[in-house]
Design a protein around this nucleic acid. Structure first.
Lengths: 341, 341
DNA sequence: CTGAAAGCGCTAACAT
DNA sequence: ATGTTAGCGCTTTCAG
């Protein structure tokens, strides 16, 4: 029953040697037209498919890519995973997923990946310690970090231009006439969080403003709820708030409206980051900076495959620019909102 | 550099045979205390880890589970994937994900899985043709379908009790005094959709009511938006609607409120199915039937591992009962809403 | 271009 | 309990 056909059986039926069969099924190998035909015929009749594992063991190439992810709550990640694994699939690679909350998990995960001899690793919004990336480099496994960068160690990364994104939100809010602008931060350990905040503060400063309030929501819905409560419980409340991602922005909007009874954007403007699907839903109608998940995924896969096929090991960082999507959650500038500025 | 240590090298250093090393690292094998100690010592010093691929080739067990998924839009799936892969991880298995939209894709996907000699397959809300499941059985690969069942072929499946869920929603709505009750269906090809609808109609009929209106939203946000528009554009509109899942229910609520200007639940009650995270958010505050994703995942993994380790190949279907979570999107029965009934 | 032969790193009889 | 030996299914020299 479940017995797979082997190359030897195909060879026997085709009247050629087993190595001939191998060559026919190996991309870069030389086989004559006639051998190939005979082999293909026999293979089809027998239902032969090369054993990927055996092949992987010899070549050292498993055509498996390890994908490390953490939070599935944030709708941005499912989107990313989908894009990533589809693209990988198209390129003939397969995705092995791993859930890792923190850096400790990552440790174990990486060993597991090594055991399966993954050809490369993509970490989606998961930080890696420097010594972990070093271990991967020593093991010869290319790594691309998605939506996270790392100081010190040189490791390839693709993200959106968080700095510019933050800055543009600041400019937009200022042009909208806001004077008490708050920021609700994500987890401080994340480079995305830091860059968005830095860009935002920069934009504010360039216009002669300071951050009016600052709270941390740790990228979670509940964290953002608490942060909003703290920020808007003060005597004078902000008239605008930039939230480090859409997922938290939803929590902030819900809290503002349903707990605090404030109107958006009449009483307070809210701007998010990511442009997940739900940001466009009428309930939120959120003004936000779009992260081009599709292009970012494409880019990440491209970089990883380059790394795999060239073993040049030159790391590069790419930050894709995403537009500010203007919807109804923030008061508009008098002059029409203009993304170009 | 990236050269892995082999068992032979460990053996040399430990002063034992290579097979001794193998035995020490093989769960069901016999090795003396002293050998084990020597081997572990040498292994640690050298940084040895058994080559999973080589092991897989021999044993025929890859410890890889293939996971087939389709829609990532619906927040229920990320949740499921997370639960599934975490559980599998705990059991020492690894998850290979595959995106498949339709049955054609599934065909290719299964071949790929076979190439990697996956030990088992879980399909999450993806239908499989009968001949596909037959092929898996022939290949000796156990399959568990998650949130989908199949007529004819006997294949293991775990889902929530959709029939009962639908029925209880009907009862709840009727006790709430609704008289014109509509249903917005998911994709008709899905067993979950059919069962929910059947249960719902049954519940209605048992109370002497008929379905007042019926539209199809195909499990998509946009589809549900259109369905809601059609259903509530008629001269007399329903006073309640059961939507086949939360994801569509959000679309229906958004449309009702922001396009049609109706109030929920004053003008119309809305009930969903799944109880995804966002259902609890104040913006939706959706009354819905909970699918116990966690238990369902645990159950699915349990069943699959059983199948793998027993090769008894007796398929079973499990339907877990989930409670109706009463929130604010539907008018309550006069007597306090009572789940027991 | 092709067949014979040598492994890849490991497990599983088979002896001892 | 442990070493020896024979493969798992394939790719890759190496001759020819």
């Amino acid at each position: 029953m479940g017995d797979r056909i082997t190359a030897a059986e195909v060879a026997a039926r085709a009247g050629v040697s087993q190595s001939a069969v191998s060559r026919v099924f190996t991309p870069g190998a030389s086989a004559s037209e006639s051998t190939a035909r005979k082999v293909h015929k026999a293979a089809k009749e027998l239902g032969y498919r090369p054993n990927t594992l055996a092949r992987a063991m010899i070549t050292g190439k498993s055509r498996i890519i390890g994908l490390v992810v953490a939070h599935m709550d944030n709708q941005f990640y499912p989107e990313v995973i989908e894009n990533l694994s589809r693209r990988l699939q198209e390129e003939g690679y397969h995705t092995m997923v791993f859930m890792a909350e923190n850096t400790d998990d990552a440790e174990k995960v990486i060993s597991d990946f090594m055991d399966y001899q993954v050809d490369g690793i993509i970490t989606a919004s998961v930080g890696m310690s420097n010594d972990l990336t070093a271990r991967c480099r020593d093991a010869g496994i290319p790594v691309v970090m998605f939506n996270r960068t790392q100081d010190g160690e040189q490791v390839s990364a693709v993200s959106s231009d968080n700095l510019s994104g933050g800055r543009r939100v600041a400019e937009f809010l200022i042009r909208g006439g806001h004077r008490r602008i708050g920021y609700i931060a994500g987890w401080e350990g994340a480079s995305t969080q830091r860059d968005r905040e830095m860009g935002f503060r920069l934009g504010l400063n360039m216009a002669g403003q300071e951050l009016f309030a600052h709270e941390t929501g740790d990228f979670s819905y509940d964290g953002a709820t608490q942060a909003a409560l703290r920020m808007f419980g003060a005597k004078t409340r902000p008239d605008a708030v930039f939230v480090a991602n859409d997922h938290m922005a939803f929590a902030v909007m819900d809290t503002l409206r349903y707990t605090l009874g404030l109107r958006i954007p009449e009483d307070v403007s809210v701007v998010g980051y990511d442009d997940v699907k739900a940001a466009a839903w009428p309930s939120y109608n959120l003004t936000t900076v779009r992260q081009p998940a599709n292009q970012m995924a494409a880019q990440a896969v491209l970089m990883l495959l380059d790394l795999i096929n060239s073993d040049a090991q030159v790391s590069q960082r790419i930050a894709l620019q995403g537009p500010l999507i203007v919807r109804g959650s923030a008061r508009l500038p008098k002059e029409q909102a203009d993304e170009g500025l």
